[in-house]
Simulated scan of single mutants.
Amino acid sequence: MTVVTGQLAHAVRQQLRLGRLLPVGGPQDGTWLTEQAAEGVLRRAAAGVPGVRLDRLRIGPTDPDAVGVPAVPSPPSALPPVPLRIDAECGATVDEPLPVAADRLRAALLGAATDRLGLAVDTVDLRVAEVLDGPPPPLSPPGKPDAGRPVSPETSGSREAVAAAAATAVPGVTRLAPVLGSSRGVHTDGAHLRLELAVAADHHALDVARRVRTAVADAVPRPVTVAVLITAVDVIA
Results as ranks from 00 to 15, higher is better:
residue 169 A to C: 09
residue 170 V to R: 02
residue 142 P to F: 07
residue 225 T to G: 12
residue 31 T to R: 15
residue 1 M to K: 09
residue 121 V to E: 01
residue 91 G to P: 03
residue 56 R to C: 02
residue 77 S to M: 09
residue 217 A to N: 06
residue 13 R to F: 03
residue 27 P to S: 12
residue 172 G to Y: 08
residue 80 P to L: 08
residue 75 P to H: 09
residue 158 S to K: 08
residue 148 G to H: 04
residue 223 P to V: 05
residue 22 L to W: 07
residue 180 L to S: 02
residue 180 L to C: 04
residue 213 R to V: 07
residue 18 L to Q: 10
residue 101 A to Q: 14
residue 46 A to Y: 03
residue 107 A to V: 02
residue 23 P to S: 12
residue 99 P to C: 11
residue 18 L to A: 14
residue 193 L to F: 07
residue 80 P to Q: 10
residue 30 G to L: 04
residue 82 V to G: 11
residue 200 A to C: 07
residue 58 R to P: 00
residue 87 D to P: 00
residue 94 V to M: 13
residue 30 G to V: 08
residue 12 V to A: 12
residue 175 R to D: 05
residue 235 V to C: 06
residue 219 A to R: 14
residue 226 V to F: 03
residue 200 A to E: 15
residue 83 P to F: 06
residue 229 L to K: 04
residue 1 M to R: 12
residue 136 P to F: 07
residue 84 L to A: 09
residue 101 A to C: 05
residue 217 A to V: 01
residue 196 E to F: 07
residue 151 V to R: 09
residue 182 S to I: 00
residue 90 C to P: 00
residue 103 D to H: 13
residue 166 A to K: 06
residue 156 S to H: 08
residue 134 G to Q: 12
residue 178 P to H: 01
residue 221 P to T: 06
residue 14 Q to G: 05
residue 118 G to K: 06
residue 30 G to Y: 03
residue 123 T to D: 14
residue 162 V to R: 13
residue 191 A to E: 12
residue 146 D to H: 12
residue 126 L to R: 01
residue 95 D to E: 13
residue 165 A to K: 13
residue 92 A to N: 02
residue 9 A to P: 06
residue 190 G to S: 11
residue 144 K to M: 05
residue 106 R to Y: 00
residue 25 G to D: 08
residue 132 L to Y: 07
residue 48 G to A: 13
residue 210 R to I: 00
residue 162 V to L: 15
residue 161 A to F: 01
residue 216 V to W: 09
residue 117 L to P: 01
residue 50 P to K: 15
residue 74 S to H: 11
residue 75 P to I: 10
residue 213 R to M: 07
residue 90 C to M: 09
residue 99 P to H: 10
residue 184 R to C: 05
residue 221 P to G: 09
residue 28 Q to P: 03
residue 123 T to E: 14
residue 228 V to D: 07
residue 95 D to R: 14
residue 68 G to Y: 02
residue 162 V to P: 00
residue 68 G to R: 13
residue 38 A to T: 11
residue 156 S to Y: 04
residue 183 S to C: 12
residue 96 E to W: 08
residue 66 A to Y: 08
residue 200 A to T: 03
residue 232 A to H: 11
residue 48 G to T: 14
residue 198 A to M: 05
residue 15 Q to Y: 00
residue 170 V to K: 04
residue 70 P to K: 14
residue 144 K to S: 12
residue 195 L to Y: 06
residue 221 P to W: 01
residue 31 T to P: 11
residue 1 M to V: 08
residue 192 H to T: 00
residue 93 T to A: 12
residue 188 T to K: 14
residue 114 T to A: 04
residue 133 D to Q: 06
residue 199 V to E: 00
residue 66 A to R: 14
